[in-house]
Design a protein around this nucleic acid. Structure first.
Lengths: 226, 226
DNA sequence: TTTATTGAAAATGTATCAAGGTTAATCATA
DNA sequence: TATGATTAACCTTGATACATTTTCAATAAA
């Protein structure tokens, strides 16, 4: 009778530390270049150094943290070129996912996307904008039902559209919200018509335009923090 | 006067353990499903459990190891569907990389690819075949000069064309070496002519054909090795 | 045969220690 | 004042020992 598996989705300490740290990095609360000292983190999370070190290794694999031997971990400070490279990865992953997803989309998937665009329309803060943008791109790719692909897209969506990625520059200028919105609308319409090719073309141009904007901002803002 | 930075490219113990373990997993020396006990690994590498645990976390992020709370780490046992999902990721990444790479290819890059095909032609063992296959796909993508993209491709090339991925089935049957060779030749010729579209089309079909072969082998071999 | 019980094995995490390498501050020198 | 060497504090890396908890497998009971 006793429920033996009472806590199936329990998480290891290193996951909790990793997730909280990732959130702090992406939200900009811990700025790029910041040193991440094991002792300090251990104290903050009321943990020993072992789970802290595991969390740092995981964040290193995600690219959010850089480590050097005997010099420890530092929040990664991606250059504009690095962000552009990440955006190319996003183009690769999201276009493939969309290609697989569009034919599989249910009415519920379409409705979901429509709802996100509605929320996007009413967004006020950059935070809301970024979150709804992320949700739209995810909603577009998730019907492909490729979990590993979705996980990668989730990671790269976050790290390219968060305050973390826009540390050097004023992203509100770099991206025109109106254009983004009309792009999303065009993608959604193409989804409704099951026009895979148009979805892909617009999606690629959509992300490419962010790359182009970044390139323009490359010259003026070359100040490296730290 | 002394050279202060005498060892710039020295590696942490966890990296060495990770790399050696990864090699063992991909080469099939440690088969999927095998439990990876911390103590045993620590003993094998003459290390303590700390770097072992870090190595396992890194391999977990790469997808080669699965962990469950209080149950430890196990070599991942990807299903055929999982491998197909990985191959879709490869199509995404490699086609994008090729699109960026072809216009940037130097004569040296072309020569390098030609040389790999030559070696491929003379390969005898499945190991040589796999290695040259990997080198060709990497050589095709590297001129894109996107380090993060190349790193991802390297990872997924390895994990989909190694004995690890072909654990359930007899891959020598699933993939026709001759077809692979002619595909590669066609891709190389398209590169020479700077015909990006043809490169992409053939490359996608080339990887897709592996997916198709896998699908055929899905029914007969459903034996899960714990 | 099924269900409990129980004990060994293993994972998770803490605390402490030692041996290096880095970093920064101090001090001496040109 | 600037430059360069020395030193000391700090931090990382790693080892070791220990406690707690969960799994897992073998045994005993219904």
């Amino acid at each position: 009778m006793g429920v033996t598996k009472s806590k199936p989705n329990q998480k290891s300490l290193s996951y909790k530390i990793r997730d909280e740290l990732r959130n702090d990095i992406l939200s900009g609360q811990i700025v790029p270049g910041t040193r991440l000292r094991q002792e300090a983190l251990a104290e903050r999370f009321n943990a020993s150094r072992i789970p802290v070190r595991e969390a740092l290794r995981q964040l290193e694999m995600e690219g959010l943290v850089k480590t050097q031997l005997n010099r420890g971990a530092v929040v990664a400070a991606p250059s504009i070129d690095d962000i552009c490279d990440l955006l190319d990865i996003r183009i690769a992953l999201e276009c493939r996912a969309a290609k697989l997803a569009v034919p599989k989309m249910t009415q519920a998937d379409i409705d979901h996307l429509e709802q996100i665009l509605e929320q996007y329309h009413h967004s006020q803060t950059p935070g809301e904008w970024a979150e709804n943008n992320r949700l739209f791109h995810l909603g577009l790719c998730e019907p492909a039902k490729n979990k590993q692909l979705t996980a990668l897209i989730k990671l790269y969506c976050m790290s390219t559209s968060s305050p973390y990625a826009n540390f050097h520059l004023d992203m509100t200028n770099a991206t025109d919200i109106k254009t983004v919105n009309s792009d999303h609308l065009e993608i959604l319409n193409a989804c409704k018509e099951r026009d895979v090719n148009r979805v892909i073309i617009v999606l690629e141009q959509h992300i490419q335009s962010t790359k182009d904007s970044l390139m323009h901002y490359q010259t003026p803002c070359n100040k490296v923090t730290q």
